[in-house]
Deep mutational scan, measured.
Amino acid sequence: RSTHNEMEKNRRAHLRLCLEKLKGLVPLGPESSRHTTLSLLTKAKLHIKKLE
Rank of each mutant, 00 (worst) to 15 (best):
S33F: 15
L46A: 15
K50G: 03
L46E: 10
S39C: 09
K21E: 01
H47G: 14
H14S: 11
L19I: 07
K23I: 02
S39N: 15
L51A: 03
E52R: 15
L19Y: 03
P30A: 14
V26M: 11
L19G: 01
S32M: 07
K45I: 05
T3Q: 07
K21P: 00
N5R: 11
L38A: 09
G29L: 11
E20Y: 01
A13H: 06
E52S: 15
T36A: 10
M7A: 07
L17G: 13
L38S: 10
S2I: 03
L40E: 02
K43Y: 03
K9N: 11
T42N: 15
L41P: 01
H35D: 03
L28Q: 06
K9A: 05
L15M: 03
L15K: 01
L51D: 05
K21W: 10
H35G: 14
T42S: 12
V26Q: 01
K21V: 01
L19N: 03
N5E: 15
P30M: 11
S32F: 08
S32A: 08
K9P: 07
K9H: 03
L28G: 10
T37R: 11
R12G: 10
A13N: 10
P30L: 15
E20G: 07
I48C: 04
K21C: 04
S2R: 02
L38Y: 06
H4L: 14
S2K: 05
N10V: 08
E6V: 05
P30G: 13
V26N: 09
R12A: 05
H14T: 10
S33N: 12
L28P: 06
E6T: 13
S32L: 13
C18E: 00
L22F: 04
M7D: 08
K50W: 06
S33W: 15
V26H: 04
H14W: 07
I48L: 13
R34Y: 05
S32D: 04
L41Y: 06
E6M: 05
L28S: 07
L40C: 02
N10T: 09
E6G: 10
G29I: 12
H47D: 01
N5P: 15
L46C: 08
N5W: 11
T42V: 05
P27E: 07
P27M: 13
H4V: 12
T36C: 13
K45T: 01
L19F: 08
H47R: 07
S2G: 11
M7P: 13
L25A: 04
R12W: 12
P27D: 08
M7W: 02
A13M: 09
L22R: 00
K43S: 04
I48Q: 02
L15S: 06
T36D: 09
N10H: 09
E52N: 11
L15D: 04
L19K: 03
T36V: 13
T3E: 11
S39A: 10
A44V: 09
K45G: 05
E52A: 14
E52F: 12
T42A: 13
R11H: 09
S33M: 15
R1G: 06
I48P: 03
S39W: 09
M7V: 07
E52Y: 11
P30C: 13
E6R: 04
L22K: 00
M7I: 06
T3I: 06
L51Y: 06
P27C: 14
K23L: 03
H4C: 10
L19H: 00
S33L: 15
K43C: 02
N10W: 04
G24R: 14
S32W: 11
E8P: 06
L17Y: 07
H14K: 11
K23Y: 00
L40F: 14
K45R: 12
M7E: 05
E8Q: 09
E20L: 05
P30E: 09
L41D: 01
T42I: 05
N10L: 02
S33C: 14
L40R: 05
K50I: 04
G24E: 05
S2D: 10
P27A: 12
L17V: 10
L22Q: 00
T37A: 13
L51F: 05
L15Y: 01
G29Y: 09
L40H: 02
I48E: 04
E6L: 06
K23M: 05
K50A: 04
A44F: 11
A44K: 00
K50M: 04
R11L: 09
K45D: 02
E6Y: 08
H47L: 15
K45Q: 01
V26A: 04
L25D: 00
I48K: 01
V26S: 04
C18N: 03
K23C: 02
S32C: 10
L22N: 00
T42Q: 14
C18I: 14
K9E: 08
K49N: 01
G24L: 07
V26G: 03
T36E: 06
L41N: 02
L25Q: 03
K9F: 02
E8V: 10
H47Y: 15
K9Q: 07
P30T: 12
C18G: 05
L40T: 05
L17P: 07
L40G: 01
T37P: 11
L40P: 02
V26C: 10
T37E: 01
T42H: 10
N5L: 11
R11D: 06
K50Y: 02
T3F: 04
T42Y: 03
R34H: 01
E6C: 07
C18Q: 01
H35M: 07
N10C: 07
M7C: 11
S39E: 05
G24N: 09
